[in-house]
C-alpha cells in the first residue's frame, strides 16, 4: 500500500479512451444531420452520457476511487434532477400553455394544432 500512492494505469488505457471519445463525439456531431425525433434525441443523450461517463470514470479516475467518495459525488446531483423535471413540467404544461391560450401566441402552429389540448407536447425543431 505505502509505495503505491496515486493512480497508475497503463498508458494504452488512456489512448483507448481517448480514441473512443473522438468516435463518440463524431457520432454526437452527426446527429445534427438527422431528422428531428425521438431517435435523434435518444442518440444525443446516449452519446452525451457515454462521453461524460468515460471522462468521469477513466480520466477523472472515479472508477478507481472507493465507494465512499463515488457515492458522495454522484448522489447530490439527484436534487438537480428534481429541479430540472419540475421546471420542464411547469414550463410547457403551464407557463407556455397560458401564453398560447390567453395571449394568442403560438409560434409553432404545425407543432401543436390544438394549443388547449394538454396532450399537445411542445417539442423543439
Amino acid at each position: 500500500m505505502s509505495s503505491e500512492v496515486g493512480q497508475q494505469h497503463p498508458l494504452s488505457l488512456y489512448f483507448w479512451i481517448w480514441g473512443l471519445l473522438f468516435v463518440v463525439s463524431a457520432g454526437s456531431y452527426f446527429t445534427d444531420f438527422m431528422e428531428a425525433g425521438y431517435l435523434r434525441w435518444t442518440l444525443i443523450l446516449t452519446f452525451m452520457l457515454v462521453k461524460a461517463g468515460y471522462i468521469v470514470a477513466i480520466f477523472m479516475h472515479l472508477k478507481w476511487e472507493r465507494w465512499a467518495l463515488i457515492y458522495a459525488l454522484l448522489l447530490p446531483p439527484g436534487a438537480l434532477l428534481v429541479l430540472m423535471g419540475l421546471m420542464a413540467w411547469e414550463s410547457w404544461d403551464y407557463t407556455w400553455l397560458s401564453r398560447v391560450v390567453y395571449f394568442g401566441e403560438d409560434p409553432y402552429p404545425l407543432r401543436c394544432p390544438d394549443a388547449a389540448n394538454p396532450n399537445c407536447v411542445p417539442m423543439a425543431h
Binding site: 429541479l83 414550463s91 410547457w92
Partner: peptide, 21 residues
C-alpha cells in the same frame, strides 16, 4: 456542477416557455 446545472436548467426553462420561435 450545481452552478452549471442551474444555468442549463434556466436555459431549458426560458426556452420551453418562449412563445417566439
Amino acid at each position: 456542477t450545481f452552478i452549471f446545472s442551474c444555468f442549463l436548467i434556466s436555459y431549458m426553462t426560458v426556452r420551453i416557455t418562449a412563445a417566439e420561435p
